[in-house]
Nucleic acid binder design. Structure first.
Lengths: 199, 199
DNA sequence: TAGCAAGTTGACCGCGCGGTCCGGTTAGTG
DNA sequence: CACTAACCGGACCGCGCGGTCAACTTGCTA
């Protein structure tokens, strides 16, 4: 048996500091944020970064899985609540709000092949599927929309709003509203092209 | 007076080769595509790149202005044609098709501060404003949508479709249809947040 | 066809990156 | 309290980048 000791207190603290600093640094400078800057921001040496995360990609993966799991848990809570239509609306709103605070969506492309990230995404996808299926069954959203569609459309409001130079706070709400109108059964035209499946 | 000679024939050819090679290389490797690779792909030396474009950013700017001007001219043609609703639909379809062939939308962020790019964007924006205003006046799209809104929403279908791993051709059409339904007056809920203005 | 400005080339430069490594430090244990 | 394994820090490495330059080649003109 590998009876591993619990990690030292400072190691736990530094790991948390590093994740926070990295999220901030990536949000400000994109994927090009340097490991040295992240270490400086966290107040530790560069070597400490690589002790906790073998490569820069592993660090990115850790941030992403944390964020996706947060949405996963939110989805489960919404499923337990009553209103199927509100659940979809609130899920998409929360996802956009998370991205508004710190837009890290570009990190997804960099780590799509890492199994831990894929697993977290699958967990989140399963929850979205459930939320969307329930709303569809209640006629709260159009019949030809799948969970995968909603997953893909999730990031669009922030992406769109991000093109405005001096960040208008909450502008994403405007485009989320447009997309929600597009998802509603009212006045829906038939969709071309079959819905996609992931992996 | 500065009576400049016309450029030499090989210089004109190389400039064209470089723009094409750079567009391909950026589409494949993102903004990180190296100048050396672009030169190799165009079949010229690295020095030649910097003779035509003072910096890598200038090269990016040249590609972007070309593409935006193409859409600008399309918009003008659509304005001359009859159907206001079809004009919006066709403009957005063409914009998405351009991005489908080679997605270079990420280049915009890198050069947003360059005046020549801003000028090309403003030309395109003016055309979009006209196309959207005409459609709005005819009741073809909802009353609370502006040209800037459409400009911002333009890239969303490709962005959304781009998250699917093994590129489903024309998947963007599905999400363009969702957004077009969201832009239609039918079943439109009031939008939160005022429409943005650029610069 | 002679002359030359314009164009081309690839070796070269400095820089900052991701990642390594080892000597010094410190938190937890018996 | 003394010991030690885990942890930390930052100098260091090799690499590939954007950009420069001086020697060479070539399309145009008179």
């Amino acid at each position: 048996m590998t009876a591993t000791r619990p990690p030292r207190a400072d190691a736990v603290r530094n790991r948390r500091l590093l994740l926070a600093a990295a999220a901030d640094e990536f949000a400000e400078h994109g994927l090009d944020a340097s490991v040295a800057d992240i270490a400086r921001r966290a107040g530790v040496g560069k070597g400490t970064v690589f002790r906790h995360f073998a490569t820069k990609d592993d660090l990115v993966a850790a941030i992403l899985t944390d964020r996706m799991d947060a949405l996963h848990h939110l989805g489960e809570r919404l499923l337990a609540s009553g209103d199927p239509a509100a659940a979809v609306r609130e899920f998409l709103t929360a996802a956009a709000a998370q991205r508004q605070e710190r837009d890290l969506s570009f990190l997804a492309a960099a780590t799509e092949s890492m199994p831990e990230v894929a697993a977290a995404r699958d967990r989140m996808m399963a929850t979205i599927d459930a939320v969307v299926a329930r709303a569809r069954d209640h006629g709260a959203i159009r019949a030809d929309i799948t969970g995968t569609d909603v997953f893909l459309l999730m990031c669009a409001p922030n992406y769109v709003a991000g093109y405005v130079p001096d960040a208008v706070p909450d502008l994403w709400r405007r485009y989320l509203a447009v997309i929600l109108d597009g998802l509603s059964p009212e006045g829906a035209q038939p969709l071309p092209i079959q819905p996609p499946t992931l992996t």
